[in-house]
Design a protein around this nucleic acid. Structure first.
Lengths: 177, 177
DNA sequence: GTCTATAGGGGGATAGAC
DNA sequence: GTCTATCCCCCTATAGAC
């Protein structure tokens, strides 16, 4: 990307922000265009369809999160694997909370166009968490991985949406325990 | 309710099931009517609007969950308050998983008609959890309550959607720890 | 109470000038 | 690349027969 398309990025940001507040289906392309400060035609110049746009948003967010977590885990000291994963995840939410919210709300849905890649990423997340639990010598069944995943998701949003004064380390401590 | 309206209940069930899979906005009244086996006119005979119907669904589900949890907590033995809350919550999801999924996905949204009552119920849940944490002699900051809430939500859905063989007590143990 | 038919509006998407 | 104008479908909601 030598010269990144600025309109395209403005559209993606507006789309993420709106969908985080109202959901994807309730967000219209007119709203996205207006919030991004471009005409609707420009949205369709940059993206094939609304659906393709949100598919991209979701898979990109998941991929970035997975990369970030894997990198952090490689350098984790003994006994801190889970905390390291949680910290990396929370930092990702800090960086792009809207995208995180969109992904989180789509997480439970089954009948969606982008569901396949989402389910695959969900599995990656869970097995990464199970690995981390094993490395820390903790219980590591599916339900334990699910518990940590849910905890870090909810703590992350509580922090971003309702309690911005909560420190990162306080959040990590609560979610990783 | 001497003679409960059967059509009305069929409509509500279908509406919950469809919205759990696709989200509320993506679910059409035509689909709801068809899945319930009634005409669209009958949907509007029983409910003022689609929005009113889902508002009812959500507030009812939250109220039932709150009642169930408060009752369970009253009878909890020392040191088992958190596990008791989690167990009551998971049993509620077992009973009506679709309604639980609808509520969970709406939990993060800010721009929705039913948001006010949802936010109020969210606060009730959090303070109930904080009480339980205190009673068990555990850390009880907002982030700790959020962690337990997220854990029980995610474990509940993991169990209902992907791992039905997971026992209730295994789920409770993972989410309450 | 339940149906069919239809009104009315808003949504995604495209065409074509600049 | 960005805009305006427009198409056309589908969605919510209503009217009115039975």
């Amino acid at each position: 990307m030598a010269r990144p398309n600025v309109s395209r990025q403005k559209v993606l940001d507006a789309a993420a922000e709106l969908a985080a507040a109202k959901g994807i289906s309730a967000t219209t392309v007119d709203e996205i265009a207006s919030a991004a400060g471009v005409a609707k035609g420009s949205v369709y110049y940059n993206f094939e369809s609304k659906e393709a746009m949100y598919s991209l948003l979701i898979t990109d967010a998941l991929e970035r999160a997975a990369l970030r977590i894997r990198a952090a885990l490689n350098n984790a000291a003994d006994g801190t694997a889970v905390a390291t994963v949680v910290r990396a995840f929370l930092m990702g939410i800090d960086e792009h909370p809207a995208a995180g919210k969109v992904v989180a709300t789509e997480m439970f849905r089954l009948d969606r166009p982008w569901n396949e890649s989402l389910a695959a990423q969900r599995d990656v997340f869970f097995s990464t968490l199970q690995d981390a639990l094993v490395r820390d010598g903790r219980e590591s069944s599916v339900s334990d991985a699910a518990a940590v995943f849910g905890a870090m998701l909810m703590v992350g949003f509580e922090r971003v949406v309702f309690s911005p004064s909560m420190s990162l380390e306080r959040a990590v401590a609560s979610a990783a325990r």
